[in-house]
Write a protein that binds this DNA or RNA. Structure first.
Length: 832
RNA sequence: GCGGGCGUGGCGAAAUGGUAGACGCGCCGGGUUUAGGACCCGGUGGGGGAGACCCCGUGGAGGUUCAAGUCCUCUCGCCCGCACCA
C-alpha cells in the first residue's frame, strides 16, 4: 500500500489553499461579502525572532482549530496574522552584527513566515501586517496624537525606572522584582522628562467593565484587578502645629483615626524641605532624603528590610482627638500612592507597628476583638471584620469597624476635615523609550509654542537612517540633527522633533483593528468593516500578557470608543489563555538548551502530527511537559488513519461521506452509533470547552472501532456503507487538527474542498441504543453488570438486578432498606 | 501577608455527584518482518489467591449522601500573580 508521506501531502495542499485563496474573507464593501454570521478568531501576534517556537505552534494551532470549526459550521472567519516587529532584540542584533534593525527584522520575518506556512494554518495572508512598517506606524502615531489632543498623552518630569543595560526607561508593568523584565538588570530610579498615557483616568472603567468579560479567565481578571488596585477610603486633612500647612492623607481605615499616634511623609513629599527649613532637623532630614534617593529599586523592595526614618521635630494635630503627634519622614511611605503622607496607627497596621517599635513611638489600641484579648503592644491587631469593635474612640465606641468607617468618614465631611476618596495602585503608562527601533513620537518641541503635534499630512514621521544605534542614555535619534531640526508647524520658528520612540506595547494595543483594513492607506481602519468584524470573537494567547498587552488594549479601545472611532468598549469578547510548554521541568529557552524546534519535528513527523500532538498533550489552559516520544502517539494515529481510509476507499464505492444506512444492524449499527457519539463528543469539546485533547482522544477511539470492525464489515454491502460513513466522518473530525492529511484522504474518498465542507451532523437516533449496561451495586459497591433493555420499567430493572447471583451473595438474604435506580445507568441495593 | 490555581498509574492525562484510570507514551509477553523512530495481537494502579474472585486505592483527616476524584470543613505540599499600596 502507498505510504503516508506527510512532507509531500502537506506541501501540495498548502499550494492548493494558497492558489484557491481558501482562507481570505471579504469586507462588507466587497461584492463577494455575504450575510453569513461572522467569527473573528485571533491569536496574539508574534514578535518575529528568527524561529517559531512551541508556544507559537500551540497558540496558533488552537486558533486554527477554532477557525476551521467555525468555518465549517457556517461562519465567515477572519483569521489574520502579523508581526510585532519593533523592539529591542532586532536593534541589539543589529548593533552586534553591524547591520540595520530594519534589515534584521525583514530577514527574521521572512524566516518565521516560512515556518508558519509549513504549519498549514488557515490564515488570511492578504491582511498580513508588520508594526514596524511605516504604513502601520503612521496610524500608531495618529492614535498617539488622538490621545495627545484629549490630554491623555502628556510629558512630565518624574522618577522613572531606568534599565542600565538597555539604556532606556521602562513602564511599571515591565519591572519585575526590581529588575528589567527583558534583560534582568537591576532597575535604577532616575528623574527624567517622559511621555505618559493617562491610563489612570480609565481605572474605574477598566475595573467596572470587567462585568462584560464573562468569558475571560478569572485569573486574568483578578490580576488586572490587583494591578489597578482600587481602594475605597477617606482623605483626612491634618493641620501642622505652628504653621499654615495642611497635609492630607489617604486611609482605608478612617475608623482607626483615634489611634493615630504619629504621622509620616514620604522622603520625596514636596513639603519635606519647607517643613524643616531653618530648624535643627534640617540637616538630618536632608541627609536621610539624600541617602534614601541613592538606593536602588531592588534594595527598596527587599521585604525583610528594617524600618528607617527621621523625626522632623514638627507636629500635626489629630483632628478627632486634638492631640499633637510627631511628623516623621520614612521611605516606607510611597510618594506616588495616595497623597504621599500617612497617619500612622501602630496598633492596627503592621508597618506602622514595626516603625513605632523601631523608634519607641506610642501605640494606642482603638479596635478590640469581641472574643478574647489582644495585646497591641506586641503585635498589630488588623482585623476589620465583624469580630472587631471600636474602643477609646469617644462617641464611636462600640461600633463595628464597618459602621465606624462610614460614621467617622461622615463626621470628617461634616467638619470639613476630610472627604471620602478612592485610591489606585495603577500608575500612568510610561510610553517613551530612548531607543531607535520603535515608532517615533510625532511631536515637535517649539521654543515659542511648546509641544506641537505633527500635522496629519506630515505623518508618518519616518524613522531616519542613522549610523550608530548604540544606546547612550538618550535616544539615538537625537544624533540625527538634520532629521531633528524642523520648522514649528504652528509658528514656523526653528524647532526640534521629539527623539524618543514609543514602547512597543503601544503598537500592539490596536493591531486587532488594523487587520480589517490592513491595506488601506487613507485611514487607520474602515468603520463599516470594524463594525462588521469586531469585537474579536475569540482571542487566544499567553497569560504573561494579563496585565500588559491585555490591559493596554482595553484602555485603547475605551479611548477610541470615547473619541467615536469605534462602537464598542471591550476589544476581546472571549479570551483563552493557553498554558506554557516545558521541557525537563523548565521553560524552553536557548540559555537552558532545552528548546525543541518545531521545524525539526515537522521534518520528522509532519506538521499534521505536530499540530495534533501539541493539542493532545493535555488541557489547553494548563502548562504541559514536552515529551519527545509523546509525538509518536498522534504520528502513529495519522499513519493508521491513512491506511484504514485508503483500504476502505479502495474496497467500497459511493460518496466521500455517504448517509448512514438505515438497514444497519449488529456490528454495522454499533459502528454507526460509535461514529455519531464521537461526532457529538468532538463537536462539544471543540465548540463549548476548547478541550482539544479529549476531542482527539475520541477520534482515536473511533479509529480503533473502525479497525476492529473493518474486516467483518467489508464482507457485506450495508457494512461497507457503514464503514465508509464512519471513515468519512472521522476524516471530517480530524480536519481542524490535521488538515493536510484530512484533505488528502477526503479527496481519495472522492470528496472536494474539505476546508469548506459542512461539519458532520449528529443523528440523535444513533446516540441511543436499545440496551444499556446496567451497573449493579450493593451498598454503593459495584458487584456486577448486566445488559438490559433500555425501556424496561424500574421495578423490572430492580428485579433483574436482584436476581443476579453475585447480588444475592452480597445481600446475604437481607431485605433491602432502599433501592436506587439511575435510569440507563445503575441500580444500587442498600442493605443493613 | 493578600489573591488565583493545582495535587489521580512509571509518564502526559480521562471521568454532567453514578463502572476511577478513557486516549496516548513507556514497559512486559507473543507474532511478523528483521534496512528502518515499522506493523499486528495480548497484558500493564497496589496487595492477596491455583482459581472464580476478594481487599485497598484519586496528598492527609473529618463530614454530607444510597453513592464522593467530584460537594462541605480543616490540614499538608507545589505553582503563579501582587506586595512597605496606608
Amino acid at each position: 500500500m502507498e505510504r503516508y508521506d506527510p512532507a509531500e501531502i502537506e506541501a501540495r495542499w498548502q499550494a492548493v489553499w494558497a492558489e484557491e485563496r481558501a482562507f481570505e474573507v471579504p469586507n462588507p464593501a466587497d461584492p463577494a461579502a455575504d450575510e453569513r454570521p461572522r467569527a473573528y478568531v485571533l491569536e496574539m501576534l508574534p514578535y518575529p525572532s528568527g524561529d517559531l517556537h512551541m508556544g507559537h505552534v500551540t497558540n496558533y494551532t488552537m486558533g486554527d482549530v477554532v477557525s476551521h470549526f467555525r468555518r465549517r459550521t457556517g461562519f465567515q472567519v477572519l483569521h489574520p496574522m502579523g508581526y510585532d516587529s519593533f523592539g529591542l532584540p532586532a536593534e541589539n542584533a543589529a548593533i552586534k552584527t553591524g547591520g540595520k534593525p530594519a534589515e534584521v527584522t525583514a530577514h527574521n520575518i521572512g524566516r518565521i513566515r516560512a515556518q508558519m506556512l509549513r504549519m498549514g494554518w488557515s490564515i488570511d495572508w492578504s491582511r498580513e501586517l508588520s508594526t514596524a512598517d511605516p504604513a502601520y506606524y503612521r496610524w500608531t502615531q495618529w492614535i498617539f496624537l488622538q490621545l495627545f489632543e484629549r490630554g491623555l498623552a502628556y510629558k512630565r518630569g518624574a522618577t522613572v525606572n531606568w534599565c542600565p543595560q538597555d539604556q532606556t526607561v521602562l513602564a511599571n508593568e515591565q519591572v519585575v522584582d526590581g529588575c528589567c523584565e527583558r534583560c534582568g538588570s537591576e532597575v535604577e530610579a532616575r528623574k527624567l522628562e517622559q511621555w505618559f498615557f493617562r491610563i489612570t483616568d480609565y481605572a474605574d472603567r477598566l475595573i467596572d467593565d470587567m462585568d462584560q468579560l464573562e468569558n475571560w479567565p478569572d485569573r486574568v481578571l483578578t490580576m488586572q484587578r490587583n494591578w489597578i488596585g482600587r481602594s475605597q477610603g477617606a482623605e483626612v486633612v491634618f493641620k501642622v502645629v505652628d504653621g499654615a500647612w495642611e497635609i492630607p492623607v489617604f486611609t482605608t481605615r478612617p475608623d482607626t483615626l483615634f489611634g493615630a499616634t504619629f504621622f509620616v511623609l514620604a522622603p520625596e513629599h514636596p513639603l519635606v524641605h519647607e517643613l524643616v527649613q531653618g530648624t535643627a532637623a534640617e540637616e538630618p532630614v536632608a541627609d536621610y532624603v539624600r541617602r534614601h534617593g541613592s538606593e536602588s529599586v531592588a534594595e527598596r523592595m527587599r521585604d525583610d528590610r528594617p524600618k528607617t526614618g527621621v523625626d522632623t521635630g514638627r507636629r500635626v494635630v489629630n483632628p478627632v482627638t486634638g492631640e499633637e503627634i510627631p511628623i516623621w519622614i520614612s521611605d516606607y511611605v510611597l510618594v506616588e500612592y495616595g497623597t504621599g503622607a500617612i497617619m500612622a496607627v501602630p496598633a492596627h497596621d503592621d508597618r506602622d507597628h514595626a516603625f513605632a517599635q523601631a523608634f519607641g513611638l506610642s501605640i494606642r489600641q482603638v479596635v478590640a476583638a469581641t472574643d478574647g484579648e489582644v495585646d497591641v503592644q506586641t503585635e498589630a491587631f488588623t482585623s476589620a471584620g465583624d469580630d472587631a469593635v471600636l474602643v477609646n474612640s469617644g462617641r464611636f465606641d462600640g461600633l463595628r469597624v464597618a459602621e465606624a468607617k462610614s460614621a467617622i468618614a461622615a463626621w470628617l465631611v461634616e467638619e470639613g476635615r476630610g472627604e471620602t476618596k478612592t485610591a489606585y495602585r495603577l500608575r500612568d503608562w510610561l510610553v517613551s523609550r530612548q531607543r531607535y527601533w520603535g515608532a517615533p513620537i510625532p511631536i515637535i518641541d517649539c521654543p515659542a509654542c511648546g509641544l506641537v503635534p505633527v500635522p496629519d499630512a506630515d505623518l508618518p514621521v519616518v524613522l531616519p537612517e542613522i549610523d550608530d544605534y548604540a544606546p547612550k542614555g538618550r535616544s539615538p535619534l537625537a544624533a540625527a540633527e538634520e532629521w531633528r531640526s524642523v520648522p514649528c508647524p504652528t509658528c514656523g520658528a526653528a524647532a526640534l522633533r521629539e527623539t524618543d520612540t514609543m514602547d512597543t506595547f503601544v503598537d500592539s494595543s490596536w493591531y486587532y483593528l488594523r487587520y480589517v483594513s490592513a491595506l488601506d492607506a487613507t485611514q487607520a481602519w474602515d468603520r463599516a468593516a470594524v463594525d462588521w468584524w469586531l469585537p474579536v470573537g475569540q482571542y487566544i494567547g499567553g497569560v504573561e500578557h494579563a496585565i500588559l498587552h491585555l490591559l493596554y488594549s482595553r484602555f485603547f479601545t475605551k479611548v477610541l470608543f470615547d473619541a467615536g472611532y469605534i462602537g464598542f468598549e471591550e476589544p476581546f469578547a472571549n479570551l483563552f489563555t493557553q498554558g506554557m510548554i516545558y521541557k525537563d521541568g523548565a521553560k524552553m529557552s536557548k540559555s537552558k538548551g532545552n528548546v525543541v524546534a518545531p521545524d525539526a519535528i515537522v521534518n520528522r513527523y509532519g506538521a499534521d502530527a505536530l499540530r495534533m500532538y501539541v493539542l493532545f498533550m493535555g488541557p489547553p489552559d494548563q502548562d504541559k511537559e514536552w515529551s519527545d516520544s509523546g509525538v509518536l502517539g498522534p504520528s502513529r494515529f495519522l499513519d493508521r488513519l491513512w491506511r484504514a481510509v485508503l483500504q476502505i476507499a479502495a474496497a467500497t464505492t459511493g460518496e466521500a461521506l455517504p448517509a448512514a444506512p438505515a438497514a444497519a444492524s449488529g456490528a454495522a449499527l454499533d459502528l454507526l452509533r460509535l461514529t455519531h457519539r464521537t461526532t457529538q463528543r468532538v463537536t462539544e469539546d471543540i465548540d463549548r470547552r476548547l478541550h482539544f485533547n479529549t476531542a482527539i482522544a475520541a477520534s482515536m477511539e473511533l479509529l480503533n472501532g473502525i479497525e476492529k470492525a473493518r474486516d467483518e464489515l467489508l464482507l457485506e454491502p450495508v457494512g461497507g456503507v457503514a464503514l465508509r460513513h464512519a471513515a468519512g466522518t472521522l476524516v471530517c473530525l480530524v480536519q481542524p487538527f490535521s488538515p493536510h492529511i484530512a484533505e488528502e484522504l477526503w479527496s481519495r474518498l472522492g470528496g472536494e474542498r474539505l476546508w469548506e465542507a459542512p461539519w458532520p451532523v449528529v443523528d440523535p437516533a444513533l446516540l441511543v441504543s436499545d440496551t444499556f449496561t446496567c451497573v449493579a451495586q450493593v451498598n454503593g459497591k459495584v458487584r456486577d453488570r448486566i445488559e438490559l433493555p433500555r425501556d424496561l420499567p424500574d421495578a423490572e430493572v430492580i428485579a433483574r438486578v436482584r436476581a443476579l447471583p453475585k447480588i444475592v451473595e452480597h445481600t446475604g438474604g437481607r431485605e433491602p432498606v432502599k433501592e436506587i435506580v439511575v435510569p440507563g445507568k445503575l441500580v444500587n441495593i442498600v442493605v443493613r
